[in-house]
Design a protein around this nucleic acid. Structure first.
Lengths: 315, 315
DNA sequence: TCGCCCGATAACCATTCACTTATTCCGCGC
DNA sequence: GCGCGGAATAAGTGAATGGTTATCGGGCGA
């Protein structure tokens, strides 16, 4: 399996013809045919078969196409990325649960970039608690914000507390939920499905059954539904401050909440991390960093905050 | 640039040592060193240089690492993907603007999968209008929903109307915006920044300056802020039906709204598209498909709807 | 200053890759 | 049955890759 073979395959799949692909690549037609043959042998699948309207993808070929197209694109991107790195700002990657990415990562990234006068750019992405350890240790991310991570010491990670908060359960200020809390509708965002996240642990601790949990596409939507009386929604209180201030929602006590929580910043050990990653880590400890971590962006977004889009195409 | 070279590079970057990487790969140390040398020559960058704590990434190397790690991971994924394709459900990829993905793609995907009794899986992703044409024509997506696409006929696309709607501007039901509309705060979701999207065209048509536009991370958040009186938010009326029914917001007339719009489904020409893509296309024309396209999921999410996560790690 | 550790280089070899030209196979319209 | 267009295979070639062992070089601690 080679990148050139893959790009030949991709081109044939898109053009529906070996001959056309050969012409597009500027090589002879057997060259392309042979590249296909290698891939077929390697994968043990026909990938493309002759049909009445040209070459058609098998289901295996269809799956490969998505992956292969990305690999080819990344191959081109690689040269570009390295080449343009001269004198360009360093790039840091931050991961957190979906709530934090939704509500605080934008202003945080922007503020840090400004503080370094543009010499560092920060992108943010969503990850589960379990993924954070491997992402950081694999250097696929520079810093993770979430629960304390106690990982294999071989991973060379450090996980330090940065901000405290209070986990509460919120319900509509107009109607109170009735009956036992295991029967309430629980409204969470995707991070609520992370079994190692604070919300996931809360739900398990309270014995809330899966069927009672509705997963909303984002935290704002879950809170809005809770304010409308659809159910109750867990929240870290300072992130829901605007909603609480507006009296849309009120705190519903449960046996386990209010409950203190603490976010940790997880990075590689200082001797293994990059200087800019260390700099971001220290920034989180400053008053400005802590303030940003506690104030949600959804309420009053700073000027033109463009949310990070880290979609490649698919995985 | 070869996948084996890249994986050697990735391993050295992660382990901080050529020797360790060689041991991990089970090859001699010069083999790894040489792979590095090839990449250095190819990219014209040191990528990794000796530091007091092992091999450290240059900025170019840092950029390459993100890309290379993905390529290596995808390479492993490729075999897996093709191998497990035997008898597995076909996979379709749907793209739409961020609003549609947020509010309707989940139930749509679920319903279609159910209708085909699980033999087809649908994933949804975000794209701008401009990207849709190339994604579909490149077979990186099977179907796009959005404005009509008039592309180069060489792309072999068809773009057909599926659902009509009304584009309106919503404001808080408690306070009316004051002054000229070009001075109002306009609250949009990421799709509002798409210059070829319906909302983008509206904003341009009304002459709203960029500084007056706040981009919220999702449509629900933008509408919530509008309901709170922060500004006005464009919306396709049937997607905001729950908010309108609850009287959180009311329609604010403008010179260009209410305004009819029409979503189109864009696919490859019938003779070039896969059978399952054609099937999804037809499903969108059925009463059930049209109903799903008009009813937002955010309001009452179906049981346990897990929103699609199409993030790989980064792009 | 002397070793020592670790990475880079050199020299070499088998294998695979990426092509080429020539030929064969296969479905299809006539 | 015959040709024809297009894909697959055969055979061959230069270049690269991926690996080896042996050697060189540079920082750093004793």
């Amino acid at each position: 399996m080679t990148l050139t073979q893959l790009s030949a395959f991709v081109l044939v799949a898109r053009l529906g013809s070996v001959k056309a692909a050969a012409a597009a690549l500027g090589v002879s037609e057997p060259a392309v045919s042979q590249a296909l043959a290698s891939l077929r042998k390697y994968f043990g699948d026909s990938l493309l078969i002759r049909g009445p309207n040209g070459m058609e993808l098998t289901e295996g070929g269809n799956r490969l196409l998505g992956v292969a197209a990305q690999m080819v694109a990344l191959g081109a991107e690689a040269e570009e990325a390295v080449r343009t790195a001269r004198g360009q700002p360093a790039q840091l990657r931050l991961v957190a649960d979906s709530t934090l990415v939704e509500l605080v990562s934008g202003p945080l990234a922007e503020a840090f970039s400004r503080r370094t006068s543009g010499s560092v750019e920060v992108a943010a992405g969503v990850a589960t608690t379990a993924e954070m350890a491997v992402l950081v240790s694999q250097r696929l991310a520079d810093l993770a914000i979430g629960p304390r991570i106690t990982a294999d010491p071989g991973l060379a990670l450090v996980s330090e507390p940065i901000v405290r908060g209070t986990l509460v359960v919120l319900g509509s200020s107009r109607s109170a939920p009735r009956g036992p809390l295991t029967g309430w509708p629980w409204l969470v965002d995707p991070s609520g499905t992370d079994p190692h996240g604070d919300v996931g642990q809360l739900l398990r601790g309270l014995g809330v059954p899966e069927q009672r949990v509705s997963v909303y596409p984002n935290q704002t939507a879950a809170w809005e539904a809770a304010a409308a009386g659809t159910g109750v929604a867990p929240a870290v209180s300072h992130l829901a401050a605007p909603q609480l201030r507006r009296r849309d929602m009120r705190v519903v006590p449960t046996p386990l909440t209010p409950r203190p929580i603490c976010w940790h910043a997880t990075t590689l050990r200082p001797d293994r991390r990059s200087p800019s990653a260390g700099s971001l880590r220290r920034f989180l400890g400053t008053p400005e960093g802590m303030r940003l971590l506690r104030s949600p962006a959804g309420g009053v977004p700073p000027s033109r905050f463009r949310p990070p889009v880290y979609v490649t195409i698919w995985s």
